[in-house]
Design a protein around this nucleic acid. Structure first.
Lengths: 126, 126
DNA sequence: TCCTTATATAAGTCATTAATTATATAATAT
DNA sequence: ATATTATATAATTAATGACTTATATAAGGA
C-alpha cells in the first residue's frame, strides 16, 4: 500500500451510497439490477459507483450469463483500514514516502529560528 | 457511530494532503505554521484541511499563546476504521440504518419475479 | 433474426471541493 | 498605541464528483 492507494480507497469509502453498497455486499453478493431495486437509484449511477469501488480494488465482479454479480473484498478492505493504522505507528523517519517531510520537520525542530518551539520544548521530540 | 459520521470521516481521509497531515501529526503535534513549512502550501489551505479533520473529530487543537497546535486523535481514528469493519460483520437485519434495505433485499430473494435468482439459487441466503 | 433484458460508457449538467487572494481576529512585542 | 506574527474566515475561481439522459454492447429468448 502507498499513499495514492490509501487516498483512492478512502475516497471510495467517503460517499453514503457507496457505504450502503458495501454494507449490502457484506451481506451477500448482488447484481446491478438488485442494487438498483434496493437503492432506488438509476442503473448508470450504480454502475459508476461500482466502478469507483472496483478501481479502489474493494469489490470484484462475477459475470453470470447476462448478470454481473458484485462481491465485496472484505479481506482487502480490512487490510486497507488496518494497514493505515499500522502505518501511522511506523516512525516518520521510516516512512519511505515521508523522507522529505521528515527532513523538513527535523530542521524545524533543531533550528531555533522557529519561535513556536522556543519557550518550553513542546512535543515528544524532547 | 452512524453512516453519516463514517462518511464524514472517510471523506476527510480521502485527500492526499490530509493523509500527509495525519501522518505528520501521528509523529507529534504541530502548529499551523510548522505544517505550512513542511507541506509547502498556503496557510489558509492548511487551516481549511485542519477544519475538515476537526469536523470529522480526528484532531484536536491546543492554543498556546499565539500558536495553535494540532493533535491527532489516534484512538478515535482507530475506533472509526475498526468500527466500520466490525459493523460490516453485523448481519444486515441487525443494522438499524438498513432495515428498509434489508426488507427490500428479502423481497427480492423470496420473490421469484427476479430472474437473476432463478437458475441455481445464488448467494448465501439459500 | 429480432426483441428484450442487463450492464457499461459517454456526454452534459449541477453540486461539491480545493485552492487562491483578501480580510478579520487574536496574541505578543516594541 | 502600533506593528508583527499566527490563525481563521470569506469570497472567488478552478477542478472534481455525482447524477441524468442517451447510446452502445452483450447475452438470452421468441
Amino acid at each position: 500500500m502507498n499513499l495514492k492507494e490509501w487516498e483512492k480507497a478512502f475516497k471510495a469509502l467517503g460517499q453514503h451510497l457507496r457505504l450502503r453498497i458495501i454494507a449490502l455486499l457484506a451481506e451477500q453478493e448482488l447484481c446491478v439490477c438488485e442494487l438498483e431495486e434496493i437503492l432506488g437509484i438509476t442503473q448508470p449511477a450504480i454502475s459508476q459507483h461500482l466502478r469507483v469501488l472496483k478501481e479502489a480494488d474493494l469489490v470484484w465482479e462475477e459475470k453470470v450469463s447476462q448478470w454481473v454479480f458484485y462481491h465485496l473484498k472484505k479481506e482487502k478492505l480490512a487490510a486497507v483500514l488496518q494497514g493505515w493504522l499500522a502505518y501511522l505507528d511506523v516512525p516518520l523517519a521510516a516512512k519511505k514516502e515521508f523522507t522529505a517531510d521528515y527532513d523538513k520537520l527535523q530542521q524545524l525542530l533543531e533550528n531555533p529560528k522557529v519561535a513556536c518551539r522556543q519557550p518550553r520544548e513542546r512535543g515528544s521530540k524532547e
